[in-house]
């Protein structure tokens, strides 16, 4: 049980960090849409368009790290099963 909690904690931390890294080290907040600026060819007005998607930010990373730390901490409270002779 102790071992399982620690492995889960490590996996959550790695997955969280990997996802955050994979989506481009976003140092801002998590977003569910990305702004892409375009230019109207006639008026030359620059205008935003939105690409829906999940773009994890530092809050996502923090949640993953805190969850992992929590599980790791809980693993210290789990007592080993005592073997009955």
């Amino acid at each position: 049980m102790k071992q399982a909690l620690r492995i889960t904690a490590l996996l959550i931390a790695l997955a969280g960090f990997g996802t955050w890294l994979g989506f481009g080290l976003n140092l801002g907040w998590t977003k569910t849409s990305k702004t892409v600026m375009q230019t109207d060819p006639v008026t030359e007005i620059r205008y935003p368009t939105y690409q829906a998607g999940f773009y994890p930010g530092v809050d996502f990373l923090a949640v993953c790290v805190l969850t992992a730390a929590g599980l790791f901490g809980v693993s210290f409270t789990v007592r080993r099963k005592q073997r009955v002779l």
Partner: peptide, 15 residues
């Protein structure tokens, strides 16, 4: 065409 836009920006600690 949905080109007309008003954008806004406010400073905040993280972003």
């Amino acid at each position: 065409k949905g080109v007309n836009n008003a954008s806004f920006k406010l400073d905040a600690p993280l972003e």
